[in-house]
Design a protein around this nucleic acid. Structure first.
Lengths: 340, 340
DNA sequence: GGGTTTTCTGTGAACGTACACAGACTAGGT
DNA sequence: ACCTAGTCTGTGTACGTTCACAGAAAACCC
C-alpha cells in the first residue's frame, strides 16, 4: 500500500487554546471578533495564533454553521464559445464585484463535458456553496434539477430552463433586435439581410424573430443566412452566402459583433465598402465593436450589469427576501457608430 | 433580531439508515461503493436514498477525510487584461481537462481588489482546496505566503515570485522573442523596431530582452516604443510613435498579437501596406492572429498545454510524487503566416 | 454588605461523515 | 461436530468548529 505523505498537521483552535492557556471558546470569540474577552486574553491568543500559525478550518466551520459563505458561478459553454464570448467575462466580473462587497467568495465552475456536469452537480449538493449563478443553462440540465431539489438560492443569466420557477436576469433579445433593425431601415437601406447564428439557443432565435418583426411585409427569407455559432468565421461564411443570394444587398444585421466582424471581413474581400455600399450592425457591444474598421454600430449588452443583478438576486434570497417571480430584463441601448 | 429563513433540512446519512432499517456504516458503504454489503441491503438503501433525497455533505466529508477533492485556479489580473487576454481561457480549459479526468473539481477564484486577495487567502487556508494553480502571481503576494505556510501543493503559470521554491510552468519569452526577431531579419527587413508592452512584468521585459539579443549591434533604442499594456489601443499608439521616429521602418515585432493588431491598424491608417512596406510579427498565436488582415506571423503560446502541465504538476504533488524543483518550459513554435 | 447587573471564561453538545473495530452469521473443509 | 475463512453489519470515535449554557469574577447600586 502506498503511503500518502502526511502534510504537516495544521494547527487547530485547540492548539491555540493550549498555547495561550485559555479555552477553545475564548479563542473562538477572538477569531470571530466577538465581545466579552479581556484584553489580556486577547493579546495572549493573538500571539498564540501567530506562533502556531493557526488558520480556521472552513470545512469544520461550514459544517456546524450550515453555510459556506461562497456562491457558485457556473459556466456551461463549449470550448470555442467560452474563449470567444466577450460577455461571460463581464458577467463574471460584475457578479464578483457584488459578491465581494458582501464578503462572499465566488467560485466559478466550468462545465465542459458530461463528466463535469455530474461532478459539478455533486459539488453543489455538497454544501460547498450557499447559492449559485448560472450562465447559459441547458434544457434538461442535471444542474437545474439539483438546484430545485435542494432549493438552492439561484439566479440564471439569460433564459432559464422552461417551466422553471427560478429567477433570471437577462435582456430582451427580440425587442433589441427589432429596434436596431428599424434603425437600419431608417437610414435608407433597401435590401436588408441577416446573418443569424445560434438558432438552437434562445438568444439566437429571439434575435432572428426581432429582425423578422421589424421588416414585416418586407421580410424575405432568402436574405437570412443561418450559421451555427456566434463566431468570426461563421460570420464571414454567412456573409458570403448572402452576397451570393443577393449581390445588391445593402444592409446587414449580424447576430453578434463577432459575426459582424467576420461579415465585414467577407465584405472587404468582396470589394464592398462599409458603410458606403453596405451598412452593417452587430449585437453585444463587445470589444469586437471597436476593433473593426469602421467601428460597429451595435446593441449594447450590459454584461457587467447582468452579473451584478444576478449576484444581488442570489444575495437577496440568502437574506431571505422574496424575489420577483418573473425575471428582470435590463436595458439595451443602441450604440450608433460608423458601420451603418 | 432578524430570523434567517430555515432552508428545508437536508437528509443525512442517518435519515437514510433509519428509512432503510440499517445502520450508518452500511449506508456509507453503499454511498462509497465499497464491497461487503448484501444485495438486499443495497437495494433497500438505494430506494431510501431516492426517497429522502439524500446527497452527501461534502463539508462533513472533507472534514473527516482532510481533503476536498478540489483544486483552486487563481486568476490575478486587472479587469481589462482578464477580459482581453486570450491565454487565460486556454490555460483554464487545459487545467480543467486534466483535473476533470482525475475527478477533481476546479474552482476558479478571481482576484480583483485587495479585499478579494484577503478573502481568497482565507479561502485557501480554510481547506476548501487541496491544491492550487496560480496564473500571473504578484510579487509580495499574500496568496504566495499562504501557500508556502500551508505547504499547499501549487503550480504557477508564468514566472513564480522571486526566491520562491514553488514549481512553475511557462515559456521562454526571451528565447522565443529572439527567434522570431531573427526570422524577421532573415526576410531582409533593414530597419526593425519593436512595440514593447507591459515592461513591468516578466513576460514583457523578457520579450524586449530577446528582441535586443537578436539585433545585437544593429539594436537602436530609438526604434523601441514602450506602452503599458498588451492591448489593441496601446499597440496602435506605439506604432504611431515608431512611424514618427523613423518613417522608413520596415519591420516590427509587436509584444503580443493584440498589440500587433493595433499596430496593423495604425499602419493601415498611415497608408503602409503589410507585408509589402512593413513586415510585422506578434506573440501568442491567439485568436487575434487570424482576425487581422493579413493574418499574423507569430509565436505560438501553448496556453492549453500550460494549463494541462500545471494541473498535472499539482496532481503529482497530491499523489506525493517529487516534482522537479526548477520550472518546466514548454515549446513555442513560430507560426509563419502573411504579415511578415 | 447584600443584591443585581455586567463582563468574562470553560464545558458539553452538535454538525454529518469515514473508518476501525468487534461481533454475527454463512460456507466450506476436515 | 469443530475450526477457519469469508461475508456482512452495527457501534464508537474522530475530524475542527460554533453555540448555548453555566458558572466565576468584577463592577455597580442602594
Amino acid at each position: 500500500m502506498v503511503t500518502i505523505p502526511s502534510r504537516r498537521k495544521r494547527a487547530t483552535i485547540h492548539d491555540v487554546a493550549v498555547e495561550a492557556g485559555v479555552s477553545r471558546g475564548t479563542v473562538s470569540r477572538v477569531v470571530n471578533n466577538e465581545p466579552y474577552v479581556s484584553a489580556s486574553s486577547r493579546t495572549a491568543i493573538e500571539a498564540a495564533i501567530e506562533k502556531v500559525g493557526y488558520v480556521p478550518n472552513n470545512a469544520a466551520r461550514s459544517l456546524v454553521m450550515q453555510r459556506s459563505e461562497a456562491v457558485g458561478f457556473i459556466v456551461h459553454e463549449p470550448h470555442s464559445l467560452f474563449l470567444d464570448d466577450p460577455n461571460i467575462g463581464g458577467i463574471l466580473l460584475g457578479a464578483n464585484t457584488v459578491l465581494s462587497r458582501s464578503d462572499y467568495q465566488m467560485v466559478s465552475l466550468v462545465i465542459d463535458s458530461q463528466r463535469d456536469t455530474d461532478r459539478v452537480a455533486r459539488y453543489l449538493s455538497g454544501g460547498f456553496v450557499d447559492g449559485v449563478i448560472i450562465v447559459s443553462a441547458r434544457q434538461e440540465d442535471p444542474i437545474t434539477r439539483v438546484i430545485e431539489k435542494l432549493r438552492l438560492p439561484a439566479a440564471f443569466v439569460g433564459h432559464p430552463p422552461e417551466q422553471s420557477p427560478l429567477p433570471f436576469v437577462g435582456i430582451d433579445n427580440r425587442a433589441s433586435a427589432r429596434a436596431i433593425t428599424e434603425r437600419l431601415m431608417q437610414t435608407g437601406r433597401q435590401r436588408i439581410g441577416m446573418v443569424a447564428a445560434a438558432l438552437d439557443r434562445d438568444s439566437g432565435a429571439d434575435r432572428l424573430a426581432g429582425f423578422t418583426d421589424a421588416l414585416g411585409d418586407r421580410f424575405d427569407p432568402a436574405l437570412v443566412a443561418r450559421v451555427p455559432l456566434y463566431t468570426f468565421s461563421d460570420g464571414a461564411e454567412g456573409m458570403c452566402a448572402l452576397l451570393e443570394r443577393d449581390p445588391l444587398i445593402d444592409g446587414v444585421f449580424a447576430a453578434s459583433d463577432a459575426v459582424a466582424a467576420g461579415a465585414l471581413d467577407a465584405l472587404r474581400q468582396a470589394g464592398r465598402s462599409v458603410p458606403g455600399d453596405v451598412g452593417i450592425v452587430g449585437f453585444d457591444d463587445s470589444s469586437w465593436a471597436l476593433r473593426t474598421q469602421p467601428h460597429l454600430s451595435t446593441v449594447h449588452q450590459p454584461a457587467f450589469g447582468l452579473g451584478e443583478r444576478a449576484a444581488e438576486c442570489v444575495l437577496g434570497q440568502l437574506r431571505g427576501e422574496e424575489q420577483p417571480a418573473d425575471g428582470i430584463l435590463l436595458e439595451t441601448p443602441i450604440i450608433w457608430r460608423d458601420s451603418a
